[in-house]
Simulated assay, not measured.
Amino acid sequence: MEIMMEKTVLVVIPAEERHKEKLERAGKGCRFVYASPQTATEEMIEAADVIIGNVKPDRLHEPERLQWLQLNSAGADAYVKPGILRSTTMLTSATGAYGKAVAEHSFAMLLMLQKKLNLYRDAQTKNEWSDFGTVTSITDVTVLVVGLGDIGLHFARLASALGARVIGLKRSMGPCPEGVHELHTMDELDNLLPKVDVVASFVPSTATTYHMYTKERLMAMKDTAIFLNSGRGDAVASEVLYEALSEGWIASAGIDVTEPEPLPADSPLWQLPNLMMTPHISGQFHLPETFERIVDIAAANLEAYLKGENLRNRI
C-alpha cells in the first residue's frame, strides 16, 4: 500500500540536476530539500522524514521525525551507536557502489608493492639511480581475501583473472563465488595466515574485527607476505603494524585506512619505506561511476520506501 502523506526528503549528497531528476522521479509527491552535510541546518534535519547522504552522526541526536536514513557510504558503524538514531528509524547503506573503486585501488597497491615501485618512486624524489633487487609476480601468489562483500569479491576477481590463487574468508559458508578457488569461514583465519603470500582485508568495523590482526597473527605470516587493508583502520593497531613492518615480520603493506584517522603527523608509520599509505580516499566519489551507483541505490530505495517495500542494504 502506498504512503500518501507528503514526505520531506533532505538530500546532502552533491547531486547535479540529472541526479535530482532521478531522485524526484523515484520520490514523486515528496518535498525535496538540497544541502550539503556542512550546510544542512538543524531545522532541515529535524523536518526531514528521509535523509539521503551522510549527515555527521553527532548532528543527529535521535531526530523524532526521521523515518529512514540512506547513507552514501558502505560503512554504517558510526550510525548504529546509541544516541544517533531512534530504534524505529530505518538505516540503509550504499553497499554495492564502492566495490570497483576500492578493489582496484587496493589491487594497484598490491602490484606496486610486488614490483617495489614505491621504493623506486622514493628514489626518484631523491635523484637516486637505484636497483632494489628481486620482485614477485601476481601469477605466483596465493591471496587470502578476508571479507567477501562487494569490495572483496571485486578484488578476488581481479587477482584471479591475472593468475593468482584466491582463498576467500567470510562469516558463513555458501557457494564458492566466481574468482575464488577456496572458501573458508573466519574461524580458519589462524590456519591460513602462514600459508598465503598476500592478505587483503576488507572487513567492516565491528566488535569482532577490532584489532583482529594481532601481533601473534602478523608474526605468523610469511616474512615475504604483503598485507593490504582497505576495510577499516581499527582492524590492526598502528603500533602493531609498525612493528610488523619495521621488524620484518612481513615484507610490506598497502593501506587506505588507519587508526586513528587522520593519522597524526608524528606517527612512525609515515616514515616506513615498505608501507604504501593513502588517506582513506579509495572510495568516496573519486571514481565518477561510484556516485552514479549511489544515486541509483538511493532512487531505487526511495521508490521502494514510498511503496512500503523492502529496502536494499538495510542495516
Rank of each mutant, 00 (worst) to 15 (best):
E62C: 11
E62P: 00
E62G: 05
E62Q: 12
P63D: 04
P63I: 01
P63L: 04
P63A: 04
E64F: 01
E64G: 05
R65I: 00
L66E: 06
L66F: 13
L66A: 11
L66R: 07
Q67E: 15
W68H: 04
W68G: 00
L69Q: 05
Q70N: 07
Q70P: 02
L71I: 10
L71V: 04
N72D: 15
N72I: 06
N72Q: 14
S73I: 01
A74C: 10
A74L: 07
G75P: 06
G75I: 09
G75M: 11
G75F: 06
A76W: 14
A76C: 07
D77P: 03
D77H: 13
D77F: 04
D77A: 08
A78D: 09
A78C: 00
A78R: 15
A78W: 03
A78P: 05
V80S: 11
V80E: 14
V80M: 14
V80Y: 11
K81D: 06
K81Q: 14
K81W: 01
K81C: 03
K81A: 15
P82T: 05
P82S: 11
G83R: 10
G83V: 10
G83W: 10
I84T: 14
I84A: 07
I84H: 10
I84Y: 11
L85A: 04
L85Q: 09
R86L: 13
R86A: 13
R86C: 10
R86G: 15
S87A: 13
T88E: 15
T88G: 06
T88P: 00
T89K: 02
T89L: 01
M90A: 15
M90P: 00
L91Q: 11
L91D: 13
T92Q: 10
T92K: 07
T92R: 06
T92I: 02
S93G: 07
S93Q: 12
A94R: 01
A94V: 05
A94C: 10
G96F: 12
G96L: 09
G96M: 10
A97G: 04
A97E: 03
A97H: 05
Y98M: 09
Y98L: 06
Y98N: 03
K100S: 13
K100V: 09
K100T: 14
A101S: 15
A101G: 08
A101P: 02
A101V: 08
V102I: 15
A103I: 03
A103K: 02
E104A: 11
E104T: 15
E104K: 14
H105V: 05
S106E: 14
S106D: 14
S106W: 00
S106L: 07
F107V: 02
F107Y: 15
F107C: 01
A108M: 14
A108D: 07
M109G: 02
M109R: 01
M109E: 08
M109C: 08
L110C: 06
L110G: 00
L111H: 05
L111Y: 06
M112H: 04
M112Q: 09
